[in-house]
Design a binder for these strands. Sequence first.
DNA 1: GTTTGTATTTCGAAC
DNA 2: GTTCGAAGTACAAAC
Lengths: 231, 231
Amino acid sequence: MRLVIARCQVDYVGRLTAHLPMATRLVLVKADGSVSVHADDRAYKPLNWMSPPCTLSVSEPDPETAAALGVTEVWQVKAKDGDTLRISLAEVFHDSAHELGIDPGLQKDGVEAHLQALLADHPSTLGEGLALVQREYLTPIGPVDLLLRDGSGSYVAVEVKRRGEIDGVEQLTRYLDLMNRDPRLAPVRGIFAGQQIKPQARTLAADRGIEWRLIDYDALRGMDNADERLF
Amino acid sequence: MRLVIARCQVDYVGRLTAHLPMATRLVLVKADGSVSVHADDRAYKPLNWMSPPCTLSVSEPDPETAAALGVTEVWQVKAKDGDTLRISLAEVFHDSAHELGIDPGLQKDGVEAHLQALLADHPSTLGEGLALVQREYLTPIGPVDLLLRDGSGSYVAVEVKRRGEIDGVEQLTRYLDLMNRDPRLAPVRGIFAGQQIKPQARTLAADRGIEWRLIDYDALRGMDNADERLF
DNA sequence: GTTTGTATTTCGAAC
DNA sequence: GTTCGAAGTACAAAC
């Protein structure tokens, strides 16, 4: 990885045309050839970037820009589809290269899938007497996250979201409409479950006769660990 | 901005739980307090990050981790809602700080808007005998980029994209369906125009009876300059 | 302040 | 390879 701190001007021509006036910035050139330009704020998004695969070529500035802006070097980063990032470097304050090696990669925990798995193991969290029939129960328009059965034998369709929003309620509504047309399943009621559920999603769910449940992920995980310890 | 290249282990607890095993990475600490951790690939997204506002505090590792992993320093980055990024530093290969100042910011240039303006000025580029009726012709479901009329007086709806993809064809299809229900407009035919048009967009357009046209942006701009010179 | 929509989205999985 | 959906999405505009 090469780290360059320099006064530079950046021009991008590709999906849009963008221009960064001359200022001091960090330019990162990574081992995969990708290039990014960072300002001194914002953690997530670079000011400008070129995703790999792309190729960097260094050239001299034309005499006028060299004279006018003090540009000493021009980096041209090109993608296969012609997208171009042009970095015109003036003063270079820092320039260093480092060997990093391949990263072992991120281990994620707690995504929607895990939430679904935990709820599948502990369906009673969603309501007294509920039992799992099937995960990812397939309907013609897609899979229902959890299909449960309550104490009286009625089916319950559950949609699990990390953050419950309106579209999730719409999705569950479509499943319920469909399932309730199947005499082997009907009547099916719905539960919308999420770590968070937006106010409007709650309102819509209630309006559709769908129950909603807030899920305490940490508590569920605790139950799971307790299980592992017990058995 | 502080640049640190170090062997480190990273743990994030917040909206999810994530873990990065010990490896050499770049850690960026920006002037707004934000922190990001980069591997030696991918331009856009850091491996891990903490968005501002957040606060960084440095502490000693507990003796066991210090002994086991060689951790010499622990950085704890906390957001207001409790999200925490913990960076456990072992070997530090590089550590430097730089004053960058406030960035003047990105200037985006709407190529699509310009393309539309140029085509409005030169509608015959899209076909013999075509003349402009209106730009941004409003339908109940949104504006059609260009409404033209051909030599026989029939209307032509034009959708302009820098990169034509399937969704653009779908959009134009909706406009055409609607406009063709208006007896004052019907029959309306469609032209899908773009600097690039993806193969599947071409296929879909053809299938829908929509013509597509590749636009030479530079040539159009040339025509525009020529006009300015003439008049 | 909250909701909605966009992004040079990126990224991964399913098909 | 293409399409679809999720993301610790981030980010800006509209309400």
